[in-house]
Amino acid sequence: MNTVPPTIAPGWTRPHLLGLEELSAAEIGHILDTALEFKRLHTIGETKLATLKGVTVGNLFFEPSTRTKTSFSLAAKRLSADTVDFSSAGSSLSKGETFIDTARNIEAMGVPVMVVRHSTSGAPYLLTKHVNASIINAGDGTHEHPTQGLLDILTIKEHRGTIAGLTVVLVGDILHSRVARSNIWGLTKLGARVIVCGPATLIPPYIERLGVEVRYRLDDALEEADCINLLRIQAERQRSAFFPSIYEYAHFYAMNGSRVKRAKDDVLILAPGPINRGVELTPDVADGSRSVILDQVTNGLFIRMACLHLCYHARNQAPMVRPGISPIVTGASLR
């Protein structure tokens, strides 16, 4: 077991990963390269590295999640970290504790890295002002899901060699999708052309100003696409009049066999999941030759290893001073 693999390039300075919006193309490249190196080490049998030995990673999931949480837990374990899980159900949150207090308590137990999922946009950002720990955003409201964006990009890059010049179509509920925003920032920074496609009710205003094109019919974007990323649609949106029915949605936006045929031969089909078979994509497409859905899941692990590794070590190099936003008892007042 290596402590820190010598092949992992130094130079990463951010203690937190809050979103892809704030990263430069070089920083995104840095994470991708680190993830690829972890993947290479894994394939040559280095399945457990020691870079986070003795470190405890907290999984703070204030919103339910199965696969992202599992992926982060596994990533931490492969770096020899211990993990502690916190989920809001049955916790002190239900006793009225705020999520900031929860995080401060967990930090006080000696947890220097926190993976945070929250239903409120910006919640991980808020935490960075109240705790010293590295904060890794595992999805905040309808804002960003940076590790998902990174694993999508890594998967595309593995299959196509480069991101620049590709046309990537994001399909579905753009308005409520944190995956869409992270994809948009990451892909456009790396030089891809991004088209967002969905019902007009689910395309947010001014989305073009993020550097993307808009199409309302999947059929109008199909032939240009090098990659199609099918975002999860939530059936409950129907009740808020965002679309008339799942049946109507699937008619216009489901990726099915006939749509795959009209697309480029080498088109890549991605989906962040969990997928509704028959809604976002039909089973033959999900399990078909163009689908890279399981590659995404595999890459997710290496992306999360990279993020945990880079952010933890950046934090250790430049420990931050806790800003005094809500001091409880200071040393001075105890004298």
């Binding site: 919006e21 946009s121 910006g122 905040d140 409201g141 309808t142 804002h143 960003e144 944190r178 925003r181 947010p204 205003p205 001014y206 989305i207 100003r209 993020l210």
Partner: peptide, 8 residues
Amino acid sequence: YYSTRLGL
């Protein structure tokens, strides 16, 4: 624009 960008 900012509500779109911030996901709020």
